[in-house]
Design a protein around this nucleic acid. Structure first.
Lengths: 137, 137
DNA sequence: ACAAATCCTACTCACATTGTAGGAAACAAA
DNA sequence: TTTGTTTCCTACAATGTGAGTAGGATTTGT
């Protein structure tokens, strides 16, 4: 299951990419338009800023805006930031690798073998989609 | 994340496919060889039997055995039985569809658009892998 | 100074996952 | 027919995670 955090994050980013304003957009505006709890979204956008996907401005007239052009923001970045590993098991994760406790030999593990394929196919999709790709209907 | 239930289920099934015995195999034997809690595995195998993937025999000399040949057991069956939907969001699930509460229009939703691609690529992998494929090193 | 916005941490609540306990039912063999 | 072995089935407990809330600190424009 995709977490709501990631789902909301993607929606917020596409909102920013679509509205394409010069000035920063406030959390409350995004939250209202995308039906997201303001406080929850606040935390999500903060994570995206720390990951370098978003940038922000404090105080009056402040808000959030994309740190790069939509075409330069790949889904891999967003998913890894908000959702964590793309792989379904740690033993096939490229960025979050961890050995399984119960598995004596990965090279002959059926789960490993299957999940490498799933990881690669998902990765291909995420790499192939930028924010710009997603806002084009 | 892949649940341990599914992970254990796949391991148990590949164990059965590999050992390829004439007689039924007991839960305890599978559990010991694959490092799985006996009682937990018991429940998992029961689910797989109800789904028609496994068959069983009670009493002395009883146990579990594959209901079909390994090449006729596809990963889609196993995943859907143990893990549930293959899609990461209900609004793109083929077998477990459910509309999102927060989303007014699926056809213009970026999450929807992205997750359809992920679903299709994962589905292709699961459809393309039978139990037999997984036990061939 | 004041108001508006992000920043940051800690907390609560609900739910799913993982695993356990204990017995009922079926079956084979003595 | 008794006994032991196995699956079957339900209920329960422990743990962890996701989702959301609360409340204040900090920054900034007017």
């Amino acid at each position: 299951m995709l977490s709501k955090k990631t789902k909301y994050g993607i929606k917020a980013l596409t909102y920013l990419a679509k509205t394409n304003k010069e000035c920063p957009v406030q959390i409350s505006e995004i939250a209202e338009n995308e039906n997201i709890s303001v406080k929850f979204l606040e935390r999500i956008l903060l994570e995206l800023r720390k990951a370098g996907v978003l940038d922000s401005k404090k105080g009056k007239g402040g808000g959030y805006f994309l740190a790069r052009q939509p075409k330069d923001i790949l889904m891999t970045d967003i998913i890894r930031t908000l959702e964590g590993p793309i792989a379904m098991v740690p033993c096939v994760s490229l960025n979050f690798y961890k050995k399984c406790d119960d598995c004596p030999d990965e090279t002959v593990c059926a789960v490993n073998k299957l999940m490498i394929q799933v990881r690669d196919s998902s990765l291909a999709v995420f790499r192939n989609n930028s924010l710009e790709d997603l806002i084009r209907s």
